[in-house]
């Protein structure tokens, strides 16, 4: 284990974490304000990735692709909110789970219908490809570093939006008492559509950004969705700050666990067995983390006290 390797893995963990944050922020916002559990959030991630791959493939511009991803995911989110989700706010959680599960089926198979089962590819733009040298002589891919930057910028932007703007005041008020702010003259259904579209756009952005380092395919959204659930369970549902801390914890645990646990096991096991059991335990690492947090605090790190 050398220091450059450790720093590189920490950066990988951060990059994974901030991308999870983009997903988790939307989920937790939607739950906090509207009280809705949205399984179809992973589909919006997929929509963003496909829109980016299609537009970038047609125009050759990665940045147009990113804009397309934001627009397509926000549009899909707004339409879904107005057609389906709106009817579910007052419904039981079970109904929300089922209706959004149905939306996953429709989105996934619909996309398979349009694009087929083979993955699409989205290339990293030339201006962002290749490694950079960090202080200390460590080589690290520029694109991944950019992702960390974008993730942190979005986190700051979201914080400013919620704490400093008029819409942010309405969002925070909506979390506390939706009847009251409706009575005060805020158009609540427009606000809900806006929040849903905002969450969708963040998911779409994450899909497009991650799509460039992985492949763009049907079903790519659900594993990320479930990780985002783990994130907000750890952070506390409804808390953006919790989502941020939770996302970084999950990102770092998953990445560092996969690298260091097998090494750790090698200290007292033979190499082959250590590799096997180390990676098996590492694959469960974030769930063990979640279990521990729940034993300590059943409503998450920053959740409302029950």
């Amino acid at each position: 284990m050398t220091t450059p390797l450790i720093i590189e893995q920490v950066l990988n963990g951060l990059q994974f974490g901030v991308m999870l944050f983009l997903m988790a922020a939307g989920l937790t916002l939607i739950f906090g304000v509207m009280g809705l559990i949205n399984l179809a959030h992973g589909s919006l991630y997929m929509v963003g990735a496909f829109a980016a791959a299609a537009v970038a493939g047609a125009t050759g511009s990665f940045f147009l692709g990113l804009i397309a991803a934001l627009a397509a995911a926000a549009f899909a989110g707004a339409v879904v909110e107005m057609v389906v989700i709106r009817r579910l706010y007052a419904a039981a959680h079970l109904d929300q789970v089922l209706a959004t599960f149905a939306l996953i089926l429709i989105f996934s198979e619909g996309t398979r219908w349009l694009y087929g089962s083979f993955p699409l590819f989205l290339d990293i733009p030339d201006s962002l490809s290749g490694p950079v040298t960090l202080p200390g002589g460590i080589q690290y891919p520029l694109y991944r570093l950019t992702l960390i930057g974008i993730g942190l910028a979005v986190a700051i932007g979201l914080w400013a939006l919620i704490e400093k703007t008029r819409i942010g005041v309405q969002i925070r008020a909506g979390e506390n008492d939706r009847e009251m702010i409706a009575a005060l003259g805020v158009n609540i259904s427009k606000l809900y559509t806006l929040i849903f579209a905002l969450g969708a756009a963040l998911a779409g952005l994450a899909g497009a950004l991650v799509g460039a380092i992985q492949s763009v395919q049907v079903g790519m959204g659900e594993p990320v969705l479930i990780l985002a659930f783990v994130v907000i369970v750890i952070g506390g549902i409804g808390s953006i700050r919790g989502a941020f801390i939770g996302a970084l914890l999950v990102g770092l645990t998953d990445t560092l666990g996969g690298v260091f646990l097998p090494e750790l096991f090698k200290l007292f096991m033979e190499t082959g067995a250590a590799q096997k059991s180390g990676s098996a335990i590492a694959s469960m690492g974030i769930y063990i983390l979640m279990g521990l947090v729940l034993i300590w605090r059943p409503t998450g790190l920053f959740g409302a006290r029950a």
């Binding site: 559990i37 059943p298 998450g300």
Partner: peptide, 19 residues
């Protein structure tokens, strides 16, 4: 572990254990 919570937490936690 998961019955310490309820509602949406319970849904997400059981989903996570499945995963």
């Amino acid at each position: 572990l998961s019955l310490r919570t309820s509602g949406v937490y319970f849904i997400m936690i059981t989903l996570a254990f499945g995963q």
